[in-house]
Structure formats: structure tokens, C-alpha cells
Amino acid sequence: MSDIQRIATDPRRSRAVVYNGMVFVGGQTADDRSQDIQGQTRQTLAKIEKFLADAGTDKSRLLTAQIWIKDIKNDFAGMNEVWDGWTVPDSAPTRATCQCELASPEVLVEIIVTAAV
């Protein structure tokens, strides 16, 4: 049986969990919520990159991503511009993107990823 490694755990959640050769990074959002969609996406992806590194992997090993956007009509293109520049060429994960009401009105994007270690 594989050990479970939890990263940045508090009473409510772990930011990332490593199990059986995979890392599951929970929903990440920007810290500076005054930024536009591109700024929030950059900050969110930087946080994800850090948690992947903490788990011993990187964005070239992404398997899947879920992206939630507050306003997909107005922010999809801006988010995609940052996402496309961040992903490793020829290593894009599977991805689903949808519009939803997020936990705070200032949050424009939330992203979850799973990667191989």
C-alpha cells in the first residue's frame, strides 16, 4: 500500500495530496483578488507550480485540469492566453472549463490539477 503525503494541510483541507504516483492539487485562486483575469490566472498558476514542485513534479507532467471562471463570456480568452503561455508545448493536459459562481465575488478563476509524480 502506498503512503499518502499531504502538503499544506489545515483543519479543512490539504492544498495537495500525493498518492500512488500522482499529485492532486486542490482548487487554487489568486491571493491578490484586485487583479484582472490574466493577473489572477498568473497568480493561480504560480501557486499550482509551487505545489507541484513541493510534490516532486512539474507542469510538464500534468494529466488533467479543471478551470472554473466567474464570467466565461468576458474572461475565457484572457484566461486562455495566460494558460497557453504557461503550459509546456506538447504536454497539455486534458481540461474542462466552465462558468460558475465562486466562493467570493472577487475571485475570477479557480483551477484544480492532477499530475504524475
Rank of each mutant, 00 (worst) to 15 (best):
D75V: 09
L63H: 15
K59Q: 13
L63T: 13
E101Q: 08
F76I: 05
T57L: 00
V107H: 00
Q99I: 00
N80W: 01
K73W: 05
D90Q: 05
D58E: 02
T87D: 09
L62F: 00
I72A: 09
A77L: 14
K70A: 03
T97K: 08
D75S: 06
L108G: 10
K70R: 15
S104Q: 13
I67A: 10
R61Q: 15
N74P: 11
A55C: 01
E81M: 05
E101L: 06
S60W: 05
A77K: 15
E101R: 10
Q66D: 12
V88K: 12
L62S: 07
I67P: 04
D84E: 14
G85I: 10
K59D: 06
S60L: 02
W68Q: 14
M79S: 10
P105K: 00
N74R: 07
L63I: 04
I69T: 06
N80L: 01
V82M: 03
P93R: 11
W68F: 08
L102C: 06
G78K: 03
D84H: 13
G85L: 03
L63Y: 15
T97D: 08
L102Y: 03
T94N: 08
C98T: 11
I72N: 02
F76D: 06
D75A: 09
I67R: 12
S91D: 11
Q99H: 03
A77V: 14
G85F: 03
E101M: 03
V109E: 00
N74V: 03
C100Y: 01
R61E: 10
A96W: 14
D90E: 08
V88H: 12
A96Q: 12
I69H: 03
Q66V: 01
I67Q: 02
V82W: 01
E106G: 09
W68I: 10
T64P: 01
K73S: 04
A92W: 14
C100L: 00
L102K: 10
I69N: 05
A65K: 11
Q66M: 10
F76M: 05
E106F: 05
D84G: 09
P93Q: 11
D58R: 08
F76K: 15
G56Y: 04
A77Y: 02
D58K: 04
A103G: 14
C100H: 05
E101C: 11
L62E: 06
D90V: 10
E101A: 05
V88W: 14
Q66R: 14
D75T: 03
V88C: 12
R61D: 07
N80P: 09
I72W: 02
S91G: 08
A55S: 09
W68T: 13
Q99T: 02
T94S: 11
S104D: 14
V82K: 02
